[in-house]
Each structure stands twice: as C-alpha cells, then as structure tokens.
C-alpha cells in the first residue's frame, strides 16, 4: 500500500492539471478552477492552526491580505516580477505572523480567537485608512504575472493563463502539508493539542510549538493572496471581509479536520456551488453559513463522520496523524 502511495499521488496531481480542459475549458470553468486552487491554499494556512493546534485563528485574513498587498504594491510601484513579489509576500507574512504570534503566545481558546480577530480588525482599518496602502480604493492595475524560469514560464493575466501557477501552488502546498504532518513540528503540535501533559513530560515546549506552527501557517495563506492579486488585478480592504474567513473555516470543517485533502474538497464544493448553482449573493451567504453551522451541529467530525457511520467497526488502518479526538 505504502509503496503505491507516492506514484498514486503523482498521477492524481497530474490529472488535476487537466481538470479545467476536460471540464470543457470554458472561461467560467478556468475561473472556478483557479479560484478553487487559490482559495484552497488560503484555507490550508488556517487549517494548520485549526486541525493541528486545535485553535481557531480568525486572523488569517491578515496574511491573505498581506500577500495580496505585497504583490500588488511591489508589482505596480516597483515593477517587481512574480518571483520577487512572492518572496516579498512570504517575508511580510512571516514578520506579521511573528509579531501576532508573540502577542498571542500566552492566550488560548476563545481569548486566542478574540485577539486574532481583533488584530484582523485593526489591520483592516489600517488598510482602509492609510493612503500608503491605497486606502479604501485599494491598489488597482496589477500587471500580468511574470514568472519565468530559465527563459520559460508564463507572463499572463486571466484565469486560463494563471491556472498552471494556481495548480502548481496548490500541489506545492499539499506536499508541504503532507511533510508537515509527518514532521517533528507537526506531530508535536498534535501532541500539544491532544495531550498537553504528555507533551510536557516528553520535553516539548508547547509555547514554542504553537508559535512555530502559527508562523509556518502564515506564508501559505499569503501566497494564496499573492496569486489572488494577479487574478483580480486589484487588491483592496475587501480581502479582510468575513466571506474569506467563513470560507476558510467552512472549507476546513465541511469534510473533516486533519484530512490532507479536506480543505481542497471543501473549497471545491463551496466554489462550485457559488459558481454554477448560485442563488444570489445573499442566498449564497445563507447556504455557506447554514452549511458551516449544520455540519458542526450534526456531524462534528465533518462529512467524513458519515463514513464512520457507514463502516463499522472503523478501519484499523487509520493514518498515524489522525488519532482519536479529544473528549
């Protein structure tokens, strides 16, 4: 089984690349696929906190917006290319995450959520009022993404041109998350969440783990924001809107926490609904909010919980990173 996992994953990843063209290749299909990839990457940033630390970060819109703002400002004002703006997005998000991580070092549970939410509110107000960041108008006219390596690459705008980049970013993110799950940090994080006493007895510094996971998660959401800026050719304070926050959380919980593909499938379900089965902006809000609440109220484990109901006794070959839930 295990020996087949890597080739199977590679084949799936390659197949994913052809999803939009197989699905007809219409502009709306490319738009949906590119958006799914970008927003899923955004959700994976918050997933690291929610699934592995067991905390609810309401501040990941900060990193998402930071990536977008870094990309647009440097591309518009300084003419930086895609690699440079991506590097800047990572650096900016790391700095912000380190500051916020230090501020929240001693907070837990709802206090952690309240503080991260407070930080997002402050960030939005600053972005809205500070002329340096474009104020309420945001930054318009982001040039096409220029991303070349050894003379090859893309120089494009629009969803079809950006799809390869979005796909690559998503695959890299998945690879990163998979590595994180098996890393010392990832397993320590789970231990701190599930059994803090054991973690302490084994010499794991819970605060250091929490801080490192928080800082690690930020560039993921930031790179999603980076690509989002090129996709829309515009960034503004609307990147702080609760839509993105609710979308991240719903994407994570809808299928089930601590599943590698969970946030991707969750994002895909949401975006497909909003693109192809939309019942108007307000109607979509009702759907998204109701799904989020209903999943947690009815199947707290997510849709995967249905699988457990169907299959009893539960499969013995559980992945090592999905131990029993607390409580």
């Amino acid at each position: 089984m295990k020996a087949l996992a890597t080739p199977a994953a590679l084949i799936l990843a390659a197949l994913a690349y052809f999803v939009p063209s197989v699905a007809g290749g219409a502009p709306v299909v490319y738009a949906a696929c590119t958006s799914i990839a970008i927003l899923a990457v955004m959700a994976y940033g918050a997933d690291l906190i929610l699934s592995y630390l067991g905390e609810v970060s309401l501040g990941h819109t900060i990193f998402w917006a930071a990536g977008g703002y870094a990309a647009s400002m440097l591309a518009v004002n300084a003419g930086w290319n895609g690699w440079q703006t991506a590097g800047a997005a990572i650096v900016v998000s790391l700095v912000l995450a380190a500051a916020l991580g230090l501020a929240t070092l001693r907070t837990r549970e709802f206090v952690f959520s309240l503080v991260t939410y407070a930080a997002a509110v402050v960030a939005m107000e600053v972005a809205f009022n500070w002329p340096f960041l474009g104020g309420s108008d945001g930054i318009v006219g982001v040039p096409p993404l220029e991303l070349t390596l050894f003379g090859h690459g893309i120089n494009g705008a629009g969803d079809a041109a950006l799809w390869p980049v979005a796909w690559a970013l998503l695959m890299l993110t998945l690879l990163f998350i998979e590595r994180f799950r098996q890393s010392r940090l990832g397993t320590s994080a789970l231990m701190v969440q599930m059994n803090p006493d054991l973690a302490q007895a084994l010499g794991v510094d819970a605060r250091a783990v929490r801080f490192l996971v928080f800082v690690t998660s930020a560039p993921i959401s930031a790179l999603a924001g980076w690509l989002y800026a090129y996709q829309r050719a515009y960034v503004g304070p609307d990147m702080f809107e609760s839509y993105f926050l609710v979308l991240m959380l719903t994407a994570i919980v809808v299928v089930g926490r601590r599943l590698l593909l969970g946030p991707l499938i969750g994002t895909a379900l949401i975006i497909v609904q909003q693109t192809f089965f939309s019942i108007g902006g307000d109607g979509d809000k009702i759907v998204l909010g109701a799904v989020l609440a209903a999943i947690l109220l009815l199947w707290p484990k997510g849709l995967i919980g249905l699988w457990d109901v169907l299959r009893r006794p539960p499969a013995s070959a559980r992945s090592p990173t999905a131990p029993a839930r607390r409580q």
Partner: peptide, 10 residues
C-alpha cells in the same frame, strides 16, 4: 465558536 460565525453569516 465556528458555529456562531456560521449563524452570523446566515
């Protein structure tokens, strides 16, 4: 916490 966020959006 997440449920109440969902309710709010709803």
């Amino acid at each position: 916490m997440i449920v109440t966020l969902g309710f709010g959006y709803l």
